[in-house]
Simulated scan of single mutants.
Amino acid sequence: MIRTTGLTKRYGSLRAVDSVDLDVRAGDIYGFLGANGSGKTTTVRMLLGLVLATSGTIEVLGEPMPRSRHSVLPRVGALIEGPAAYRNLSGRTNLAMLDAAGPGGSRRTRRTRVSDALEQVGLAGVGRRPVKNYSLGMRQRLGLAAALLRTPELLVLDEPTNGLDPQGIREIRELLLGLHAQGTTVFLSSHLLAEVEQLCDRVGVLDRGRLVVQDQLSALTRPTGRVVVHTPDPSHAVALLSGVTEAEVVDRDGQRLVVAHPDPARLNALLVADGVRVRELVDQRRSLEDAVLAATGPGSDHVGAEAPSLRAGAAA
């Protein structure tokens, strides 16, 4: 669906995007992670032909970009750097004008398409209200509605939950999962680890313009080879395991133990047989945050769970 080779964008001496090789496959929900200033938005704008690359190649839906933009873009829905709209017109009128300006949209079905898009993003009841009276979250929803007008094969979204409250974020997440279930490939650019971890199945991480990670989320969050044990008898468990050659308690925090052991089932049996009460015993998995920190290294502006990182002077 999206493939780039050596994609590079320079602004003078600054390499905003540096030799990026993206591989977004049909059926992916691909999370494109990076701190603000890492080059995410510049990359997305190049994918859609809004910014010309300094060097490298881009294919979207199997066709070269930006040369094939007239045949490709009608099949792509996009929300980049926040929605644009005429503030004095209603959301419904904005969508109708946008639909009329684009190629391939039937005038006969325009009203239905606009109504369906507003319904999908939760704006059906306020579609006739002037956009100047919309909150930031409502404007974000309107931008997403615009991206959905043509039932796109590929949906490219840059920070789609910006300005939304927790309920709104959940609704957008459920909407994207529903679209994906119907066959839409989703490319989601974000700085929020939690958003990507809950929604995406493949992940790419951009750090200072370079793609430092690209893999299945399940591979990035694989088991560490350690076991997390929750027990009301931590001292008893530690004393027992100190005499077991194949077990090592590597961390203790109250009633939570992290144990290096090759077989969780055998570890559980060992503890229970000696009278240790085990409330929970699970494989420890590496978090997405751990994977990102390992890939980006010290001194980087990391993506985060809540707020964006800022780096002065860097391109978005």
Results as ranks from 00 to 15, higher is better:
3 R>V: 15
5 T>C: 13
7 L>R: 09
12 G>S: 08
14 L>K: 12
15 R>T: 07
19 S>Y: 03
21 D>S: 13
22 L>W: 10
24 V>D: 09
26 A>G: 08
30 Y>W: 13
30 Y>H: 10
39 G>C: 04
44 V>L: 08
53 A>N: 08
56 G>F: 04
70 H>Y: 08
70 H>N: 11
74 P>Y: 12
78 A>H: 05
89 L>H: 04
89 L>S: 04
90 S>H: 04
90 S>K: 03
98 L>M: 10
98 L>R: 10
101 A>C: 06
104 G>Q: 04
105 G>D: 00
109 T>R: 06
111 R>I: 02
116 D>F: 00
116 D>G: 01
118 L>S: 02
118 L>E: 03
120 Q>T: 11
123 L>V: 07
124 A>D: 02
126 V>T: 03
127 G>E: 03
134 Y>C: 08
138 M>C: 08
143 G>Q: 12
143 G>K: 07
144 L>W: 01
145 A>G: 12
149 L>I: 14
153 E>H: 01
154 L>G: 07
158 D>K: 13
161 T>C: 15
166 P>K: 02
171 E>L: 07
171 E>N: 06
176 L>G: 01
181 A>S: 10
185 T>D: 07
187 F>K: 09
187 F>C: 07
188 L>M: 04
189 S>F: 04
197 E>C: 02
205 V>D: 02
206 L>N: 04
211 L>I: 14
216 Q>D: 14
217 L>D: 11
217 L>I: 13
218 S>N: 05
220 L>N: 01
220 L>I: 10
221 T>F: 10
224 T>D: 06
224 T>R: 03
227 V>C: 12
229 V>F: 09
230 H>R: 05
233 D>Q: 14
233 D>H: 15
248 E>K: 15
251 D>N: 13
251 D>F: 12
255 Q>G: 08
257 L>G: 03
267 L>D: 11
272 V>P: 11
274 D>P: 04
275 G>T: 09
278 V>E: 13
278 V>T: 14
279 R>M: 09
286 R>T: 06
286 R>E: 06
293 L>N: 07
300 S>F: 08
307 A>K: 11
308 P>Q: 11
315 A>Q: 10
316 A>R: 15
316 A>V: 15
